[in-house]
Amino acid sequence: MDDMIRLQQVHKQFGKGKQLVTAVKEADLAIRRGEAFGLVGESGSGKSTIGKMLIGLESPTAGAITYLDRPLWDKGQYRSPRPGEIQIVFQDPQSSLDPRMTVKDIIVEPLHALPSAERKEKGTQARLVSLLRRVGLKEEHLSRHPHEFSGGQRQRIAIARALITDPSFLVLDEPTSALDVSVQAQVLNLLKELQKERNLTYLFISHNMAVIRYMCDRVAVMYKGHIVEVGPARPMFREPDHPYTRILLSSLPSVYEPSVPAGGFAEPAADGGANACSFYSRCPSRQNACLQAPAFAEKETGWSSACHFRGGRAHV
């Protein structure tokens, strides 16, 4: 397979001593060229930390992250493959755009990290205007400031800014979580179209399973720093393997479900000890076997999960 990004045994710890927090543990991942890879999990699952390590905002404590087989991190220093090759769109377009800058200055900002010849070539007015139109804004918006726009429009500005350098890889960190449903649909459509037109590879980080299912080809599910399941999006959402994935899916309130479904986490059990499965204490189908952590194993081609049991059910 043509892997663009590879994470091997990546660890990330914050703080030290008693305050030590492990945000990401032993993460192994591969993102293929041209795909939309989803990363789903709840707050504190470590999904945003992985995104930050890919764009250079956090350095991994251990493990290797490569981009087209070249390491992204070298002795705590971020080595960008080429300025502007990897870009990010943040969740909150309110704070990711400088309130004092005009839309034009915001969008061309990433070009200032490029060599001057390339900056001139990519920063022409014609190119800027066509990009602006492509994301659904107008030329006259160039001289305005962010506060004059709605949330959806601001996110369009942020997307234009990320695309100005012609990146190959985009980290989308909850790009529609702050938007209303009707506007979210517009932005998701735009992102999907852009991916096709520009042959982009996406890492799509979200807590919203419905959005991930709609946007992504493959998905990784994270729980407390562990990747518990990786697989193809559509089959996985139909028949999740890991019990946590199943809980996550059934917790998402669905318009098509007339009552709050039963199920969910188990009552917290006593800690299973250092060797136990990371989900042991909250797993509704835990067994004695789970006191020994399962390996992250391939269950079907391209579909792996960290659970002893097939389909997460003990009786199989």
Binding site: G56, L57, S80, G84, Q87, I88, F90, S95, S96, A113
Partner: peptide, 17 residues
């Protein structure tokens, strides 16, 4: 700590700028 400053860092903008 603002997101727009972090964004600029990820673009590879130099500190003085």
């Amino acid at each position: 700590e603002k997101l727009f400053v972090k964004a600029a860092v990820t673009f590879g903008i130099k500190p003085w700028r």
